[in-house]
Design a protein around this nucleic acid. Structure first.
Lengths: 210, 210
DNA sequence: TAGATTGTTAATCGATTAACAATC
DNA sequence: TAGATTGTTAATCGATTAACAATC
């Protein structure tokens, strides 16, 4: 089966399955079903089975799925059965919140450096990391073999930062800046913009909708 | 035209169009085209015209769209031509970053109160707001006519907070907690979980993909 | 065995896009 | 007018789901 044939939308659901399996493990449960996973996620059981079938057969008829086994398989598929070294650009409020969020580590990602262009922030300690000058980006990327970066700078600086990241060899970017980045086709990008979600909910809240 | 017939996915793109129009206004531009908008967003011009056509005719053949006019129309459609009063639950690092982010205000949302259950945080000043006890949720919601809330508490507390919000009459929730919430069907929810995006990029970065 | 649940096919459903008439 | 761009239709494309054989 050609992995290139797997729809992007399927890939984007796998982390949700993984997250739910982790919660079930924490609950001490050992076996689950596509029905239970679907109920937890608001997704149909058929869709979950179909999604998993792109990658193999992980369940037992009549029984369901061994939670730890399926979790480990999904980790392998998503390549988060190891840790990725991330760099974070931007040491403002958002950058600090990102640094202190434990979910990255649990999800298979370690932030190994934080960089900023603001002279006043450089040298400051945030958790275990000291803020580095943005000029040191290339050496940091090289030292840690980093392929993924997080952008937490204002929108006005984001494209410039993205360009620097691409020049330094970064292959994937998660950005909090509310602006669409221009990037080479071979660089992945994910956008986090809470306002998009709020505005689409505002539409639904207006009288006459939903 | 029945507004209920408009696909959710179309609604979710309108904020992107609005965001781009705002950037173009900032650049001093007065007219744009579906082509230009599409180039900026990585969306086809046909799709943009099709999306807009659900709501009316906003352009001129041969010329394109008046940026301010289209922006104002989109604001009306999305109901962000006014401000919504939001409450924020959670005054940790993430809550503080949310409070200091100016994008909400620019997008049509004002955070009017921040609440936390941690005694040590209650009474602390964050920007213009003083952290309130979670017990005061109902009165705050009532006072400000709030319909939308932001959850910035740990995953383990998120469902409980969501329940309290629903009881208090909140109709839409933006949550940063990495857990799928159980909510009545008439309550909107948007999830922000950066790890989902990172994990799907990790898949794409593995040798043989992308 | 009977009941439950998987993996998969084929049908349905919905979203995107190509093409183009209308018209500024 | 000629060129550009919209709004819209119909065709294409892709994703979801219903149904069910397989089997634990």
């Amino acid at each position: 089966m050609n992995p290139l044939a797997i729809p992007e939308i399927v890939i984007r659901r796998l982390p949700l399955y993984l997250r739910t399996l982790n919660l079930l493990v924490d609950d001490g449960q050992t076996v689950t079903s596509s029905q239970e996973l679907g109920d937890r996620l608001g997704i149909s059981s058929t869709q979950i089975r179909k999604d998993l079938s792109y990658f193999g057969e992980f369940g037992k008829q009549g029984t369901g799925y061994d939670i730890r086994y399926l979790r480990d398989q999904l980790r392998q598929i998503l390549q988060v059965d190891r840790h990725w070294n991330l760099v974070l650009i931007g040491a403002g409020d958002l950058g600090r919140a990102v640094l202190r969020y434990s979910g990255f580590e649990e999800g298979g990602f370690s932030i190994v450096a934080v960089l900023d262009k603001d002279e006043r922030k450089i040298g400051r300690q945030i958790g275990k990391l000291k803020v580095l000058a943005i000029a040191r980006l290339p050496e940091v990327i090289k030292e840690y073999g980093t392929q993924i970066a997080i952008i937490a700078v204002p929108a006005s600086d984001a494209q410039e930062v993205a360009n620097a990241l691409v020049r330094a060899g970064v292959k994937a970017i998660l950005t909090y800046a509310p602006i669409t980045l221009s990037l080479p086709a071979n660089v992945c990008v994910e956008y986090i913009d809470p306002v998009i979600g709020l505005q689409s909910m505002a539409y639904s809240l207006s009288p006459g909708h939903a």
